[in-house]
Computed example of a mutant assay.
Amino acid sequence: MESAIVVKPPIINVAAICGSLRKASFNHSLIRSAIDLSKQSVEGMSIQYVDLSPLPMLNTDLEIDGKYPPAVEAFRQKILQSDCFLFASPEYNYSVTAPLKNAIDWASRPPNVWADKAAAIVSAGGGFGGGRSQYVLRQCGIYVDLHFVNQPEFFLNVFEAPSRFDDEGNLIDPQAKERLKSVLLALKVLTLRLKAK
């Protein structure tokens, strides 16, 4: 009797990018929680955090003989090798942070390594929960040819419910975790759809 062949779903490689460099930021917590969820309840998805802190500020004088600085090249390779992206985007002055915009610009230098890939955005903060930064990020994504998940959206107002995180900064709110999982599942669906083209 022949044994059944089990076909495993393809592994989607997700680059997780946080616009805050502060290690204790709530947006870093969202990335950590997404990584945990991908291991526990989102089959076929591997999320790797990509640190933006080594990147120099964009300066095309640093491009010598068609080559980028080592930290920039390492970052661009991580973006190139990823199937899709998860952005955790805090809101500074109604916009995205300088480190995040800098990273987008470096990876868009020729050849643009963002192009034709799926992306999702989550954010945590006060006021609108980082929502306005998401809309600015979507505008940037149009030019660099990213395909964003439109629904569900994920904004988390940490002032309305500070108990959403524990003392160590871990996301503990069950409803927020479920919403975050929904974003990951939508990102997976969109990524597979784009890869099937």
Rank of each mutant, 00 (worst) to 15 (best):
M1S: 14
P10Q: 06
N13H: 15
N13T: 13
A16C: 01
I17D: 04
C18A: 04
L21D: 00
R22Q: 13
A24I: 08
S25C: 09
S25I: 06
F26I: 03
N27S: 01
S29W: 05
I31Q: 05
R32L: 11
R32D: 15
S33H: 07
A34V: 07
A34G: 11
D36A: 13
S38C: 06
S41V: 13
V42I: 02
G44Y: 00
M45T: 13
S46W: 02
Q48W: 00
Y49L: 10
V50S: 01
L52F: 00
P54Q: 02
L55R: 04
D61A: 12
L62Q: 15
L62Y: 14
I64D: 03
G66W: 08
G66T: 06
P70G: 01
F75H: 06
R76E: 01
K78N: 10
I79M: 14
Q81K: 13
S82M: 06
S82L: 06
D83Q: 05
F85M: 02
L86C: 02
L86Y: 13
S89D: 04
V96C: 14
V96I: 15
A103T: 11
A107Y: 12
A107Q: 07
A107G: 15
V113T: 14
W114Y: 10
W114S: 12
A118D: 09
I121W: 12
A124G: 02
G130W: 00
Q134N: 04
V136Y: 11
R138D: 02
C140S: 14
G141Y: 00
H147L: 07
P152A: 03
E153G: 07
V158Y: 09
A161Y: 12
S163I: 00
D167W: 03
G169A: 09
L171T: 03
Q175Y: 08
Q175I: 10
A176P: 03
L180E: 07
K181S: 06
K181N: 14
T191G: 01
L192H: 04
K195N: 11
A196W: 02
